[in-house]
């Protein structure tokens, strides 16, 4: 048994079937088209997906298959054309722009492929951003960001600039930023693609431990088969659709060309 599997929460068995009692995310028939007429690009062609609270779902598939579009819609960053997408009971389609902005600030945490840390701010200030957006005082936000830095193993680097950290450390900071305001859903876009194997492994381990221990749901877009082991389920996308949803073992086998 790997470290990743060992650290899974006890309700993992439920997630494997994809049917938790109160789903964190439910998407039904979600479509998205960019452009119009002959130049239209069908990014999503009727996606059905559900994610349970406390579940870590990975979205995998070739470039351009719609993974980023799907997490953008689920995170409330992008409008979808048809279908429904309900996140923690809120139907994104029925929200105004202002409501969706507020929803993102309160409910969603983001981890980006290239970290997107603001280079002119210190590590603590970067982590404090979601709290400042929520209206916390600067002193409180900085104090809490220093606390969470300790949890990701960077307690002594709170006053550093991102440029002075390694890639793995920067991603840890990004994870701390995504967690500090206790969002119920965290979306991660290729969180390990800029990291070496060991660092990527450590980062995923951290995300499982810190995020899932609080019951938060994670959707991780990745090409990196080496981190499949951290997922509860893996949804394989192609051409704007979810082709299959597997356990990590089956997905890993499929990625090596041998489906058990």
């Amino acid at each position: 048994m790997s470290n990743a599997q060992a650290s899974r929460p006890p309700n993992t068995a439920n997630h494997a079937s994809g049917h938790a009692a109160t789903p964190a995310v439910v998407c039904r028939g979600v479509t998205k088209t960019y452009g119009k007429g002959t130049s239209a690009v069908f990014a999503l062609r009727g996606v059905d997906l559900s994610v349970a609270p406390g579940e870590l779902l990975m979205l995998v598939g070739p470039s351009g298959c719609g993974k980023t579009t799907l997490i953008s819609i689920v995170a409330g960053v992008l409008d979808h054309d048809e279908g429904d997408c309900v996140v923690y009971g809120r139907n994104l389609k029925s929200m105004s722009n202002a409501e969706r902005t507020e929803f993102r600030g309160k409910t969603v945490g983001f981890v980006f492929q290239s970290f997107n840390l603001i280079p002119t701010l210190t590590v603590a200030e970067n982590i404090a951003v979601p709290l400042l957006i929520a209206g916390s005082s600067r002193a409180e936000a900085i104090s809490r960001s220093r606390d969470i830095l300790g949890r990701v193993g960077l307690g002594d680097r709170w006053n550093s600039r991102p440029a002075n950290l390694s890639g793995g450390q920067q991603q840890r900071v990004a994870i701390a930023r995504s967690l500090i305001h206790h969002p119920r859903l965290i979306v991660c876009d290729e969180p390990t693609s800029a990291l070496d194997h060991k660092t990527g492994h450590d980062v995923m381990q951290l995300m499982r431990e810190v995020a899932l221990s609080s019951g938060q749901s994670l959707i991780v877009v990745t090409h990196d088969a080496r981190i499949f082991e951290f997922a509860d389920r893996i949804a394989r996308m192609d051409d704007g659709k979810i082709e299959s949803i597997d356990t990590p073992g089956r997905a890993l086998a499929a990625s090596h060309g041998a489906v058990p």
Binding site: A75, V77, N97, A98, T101, E102, F103, R104, G105, K106, V108, F110, F112, N116, I118, V129, P130, I133, A134
Partner: peptide, 9 residues
Amino acid sequence: TLRAMGVSS
């Protein structure tokens, strides 16, 4: 990034 994280226009 800030916009995505919930900063209003």
